[in-house]
Amino acid sequence: MTGIDNVQLEQVIVHKVGNPSRGEQLKLSVNPLTLNDELVKSMLNKYFLGAFNENEHYHFTHLSDVGMNEVYNYVTSIFQDKKSFTQQSSLLAHFLYNKSTHVKVKEGELYVASFKDVPFGNDFIDAVGIFKSETKETFLKVFEHGESWEVIGEEGININKLDKGCLVFNTNKEDGYVVCVVDATNKQQDAQYWVKDFLQVEPYADSYHNTNKYMDMCRLFITNDYADKFDVNKTDQIDLMNRSAEYFKTKEQFSLNEFTEEVIHHPEVADSFVQFKKNYEVSRQFEMDDEFDIDLAAVKKQAKVFKSVLKLDKNFHIYIHGRRDMIEKGYDELTGKKFYKLYFEEES
């Protein structure tokens, strides 16, 4: 998140939340932290807010009614009455403790914080943050000892690496607020208790969400199904990857029909892509629109993982940006090795 220098950190409280299935305890703080040191407040703001993508928005949900979502209710109480902050933070800690039974859930510190003047679009509004630190790192501390210096190792938290976070903006209450989420320790979906069980949030079906998810789905399809089901080589994969990325970069609106015709071309591959989309939506429990405005912030984010690199053993990396017709693949019988032939006009 950008523009956090002027955010006011009003209150922070820390609770210790273990995993009950391992016999670990829940230890609650009686009072919030004393925030007299401006440097510490600045470091906490960086730790709490720095990792969020302000363009990716979620909202609280519930099978019956959003008003029955526990975290939604506790946060609403804090927004309505700042004096209930400590009590509601304890309820949040209890609820998280009850949801922390998965074998891969680690013990950690739960931080609940309230903020003023958090940037939101062109405005600044109140927000409540819920954060959990699970990963500890070892730091060296150098200190003066008599006429010499000594070094000891201390365990602490890296303020540049937030493990889990949830930032709730005080807007769109009826729709489940606007929520930003970080879950850096469960990227492989082994134990998504933070998002699915504790927060119970889902992405807003906006242009950012649709663009981001469609590009992610395209990358997975080209990397996996396209390579497995069709007789294509690595350069064909990269070519389709480049054409997909170019579509999102140059178009203002996405159309599934247009994309399959202009980018994928082949009917059999297009049918496989549409089926892959259905499976992708089911596995992730959300739906994506077939037509939507393309969000450039999401395109920029996904461009970092759209790989157009052809790796040959450990000797060569070839970056392919287009013109599949300028590349030939062959086999040399004398050396018993494969080769690529590249055509070009100028060397730079």
Results as ranks from 00 to 15, higher is better:
Ile159Cys: 02
Glu38Ala: 13
Asn31Pro: 02
Pro203Leu: 00
Glu137His: 13
Glu258Leu: 10
Ser244Trp: 06
Ser348Leu: 12
Phe198Gly: 02
His57Cys: 00
Ile264Met: 06
Thr76Ser: 12
Val309Met: 08
Glu246Leu: 10
Lys46Asn: 09
Gly3Ser: 02
Val182Asn: 00
Val71Lys: 00
Leu49Ala: 10
Ile238His: 04
Tyr343Gln: 12
Lys337Gly: 00
Ala184Ile: 05
Asn69Lys: 07
Lys249Arg: 10
Gly23Gln: 08
Ser89Lys: 07
Glu246Arg: 11
Gln189Phe: 10
Asp228Lys: 14
Phe131Gly: 05
Asn122Thr: 06
Val195Leu: 04
Glu347Arg: 09
Asn6Gly: 09
Phe339Tyr: 15
Tyr226Ala: 02
Phe52Gln: 03
Lys249Ser: 13
Gly67Tyr: 11
Ser244Leu: 06
Asn55Trp: 03
Phe230Ser: 06
Asn233Ile: 04
Leu44Trp: 12
Lys337Ala: 05
Thr235Asn: 03
Pro32Cys: 05
Glu346Met: 09
His57Trp: 06
Gly50Leu: 08
Lys132Ile: 01
Asp228Ile: 14
Asp325Pro: 04
Gly129Pro: 04
Ser308Pro: 07
Val7Asp: 01
Asp126His: 07
Thr2Ala: 14
Asp332Pro: 01
Lys83Phe: 12
Val274Met: 12
Ser90Leu: 05
Lys337Asn: 09
Gly176Asn: 01
Ser244Asp: 05
Ser29Tyr: 04
Ile130Arg: 00
Phe273Thr: 10
Val118Lys: 02
Gln275Lys: 14
Phe79Ala: 01
Asn170Phe: 08
Val195Pro: 02
His59Asn: 07
Ala127Trp: 03
Tyr343Phe: 15
Phe124His: 12
Val178Tyr: 02
Met326Tyr: 11
Lys314Ala: 13
Phe120Gln: 10
Val232Cys: 03
Met43Ala: 09
Ile152Ser: 07
Val179Phe: 00
Phe198Pro: 01
Asn45Ala: 09
Leu91Asp: 13
Val299Arg: 05
Gly165Pro: 01
